[in-house]
Amino acid sequence: MKKIRVLIAKPGLDGHDRGAKVVARGLRDAGMEVIYTGLHQTPEQIAEAAIQEDVDVVGLSCLSGAHMTLFPRVVELLKEKGAGDILVTGGGIVPEEDVPKLKELGIAAVFGPGTPLKEIIDFHEKNARK
């Protein structure tokens, strides 16, 4: 039986991991396999891990404001490595005006502060590879 696999990663220097951990637990409790790679990951490490773990979705969490640099980089690397079908989502302190830009750059969804877990879970259930 297939299980939804999700990689939750913290790119960059930001150490605020409350959101990443809460989301990881929430997805686990919804029956998914969550690979958590910890803090201070480079986009290269994240993309490689996503491929080897064959995840459906990569969830990036960044509260430092570096999302415009770090998130699209992961998308690019996945495409370069022939894994453009792996979805990339983002969460953290992201100003409203950055959201359309991120989507244009290939981020499938942005979950800002206050997003209910249920919304995140639903997104994964709907969009994971069947």
């Binding site: 990881a24 997805l27 686990r28 919804a30 029956g31 958590y36 790679t37 910890g38």
Partner: peptide
């Protein structure tokens, strides 16, 4: 739940 957190990485 059938879920897991895989943290060895």
């Amino acid at each position: 739940t059938g879920g897991a957190i895989l943290g060895d990485r």
